[in-house]
Simulated scan of single mutants.
Amino acid sequence: MITNWFDDDPLFNRYYPYDAGYRYYFEHEWGIPVQRDEQLFEFLSLGGFAAGLNWAVVFNKRSAFSAAFDAWQIEVVAAYRPEQITGLLSNSAIIRNRRKIEAVIHNARLIQQIRTTQSFKDYLWQQLGHQQLIIQPQYYDELPRTALTTSWF
């Protein structure tokens, strides 16, 4: 386990002790560098669906999203047409927000373009200067609340 929990962390206190899936996510995925483009695409997409919502709502629909978006296969999602969008909008197992669904498809197409010259993973790591951000606060309230700059590396 690499995640450090704080006594004052509301996510830990609300979800972690009671939800095995949430525990697994935070112990085996959260904060661990991702090597597969499809997994990065999944995280990007789920993050988009979480905008304006509680992360737990999206997290609990994760398997439904994976099924709905063809296991996050970038080439497949990039090829979606209006009939697939209509199908997604009628899928009650996922969040049916047209703009968010269209954003996922749009992002798949952009990733497809990036992958003509390099992997999506390499593209993202390049944006970070090929360095993982590591911060070591002692308390939850010490976590940064705004975008981090390179001074944090």
Rank of each mutant, 00 (worst) to 15 (best):
N97K: 15
A79F: 06
D70Q: 10
A67R: 06
N91C: 10
V77Y: 03
K100V: 05
L89R: 10
P82T: 06
R96C: 15
A78D: 03
W72I: 09
A79N: 15
V77Q: 01
I85F: 14
R81L: 13
F65Y: 01
F65D: 00
R96T: 14
Y80Q: 05
S66I: 01
R81G: 09
A78H: 04
V76S: 12
S63V: 12
S90A: 13
N97H: 15
F69E: 05
I85S: 10
A64W: 00
R99H: 10
D70T: 08
R81Q: 15
I101D: 05
I94F: 05
E102S: 05
I101V: 08
A68W: 04
R96M: 14
W72M: 08
R62G: 03
R98D: 09
R81Y: 04
S63E: 14
A93Y: 10
A68P: 00
I94C: 03
A78V: 05
A93I: 11
I74Y: 06
S90C: 09
R62D: 02
A67D: 13
P82K: 08
F65L: 01
S66L: 00
G87F: 07
I101Q: 04
E83A: 14
A68E: 01
W72D: 04
A71M: 04
A64M: 02
W72V: 05
I85L: 15
F65A: 04
V77L: 10
V77N: 09
T86Q: 13
I74P: 00
V76L: 01
I85Y: 14
A78Q: 07
E75Q: 12
K61D: 01
I101M: 07
I85W: 07
R62E: 00
R98E: 15
I94W: 09
K61Y: 03
L89Y: 12
I74K: 04
R96G: 09
D70S: 11
R98A: 15
R96E: 08
I74W: 07
W72Q: 00
E102L: 11
I101P: 04
A93N: 10
F65E: 00
A67N: 07
S92H: 13
A68R: 00
K61L: 02
L89S: 10
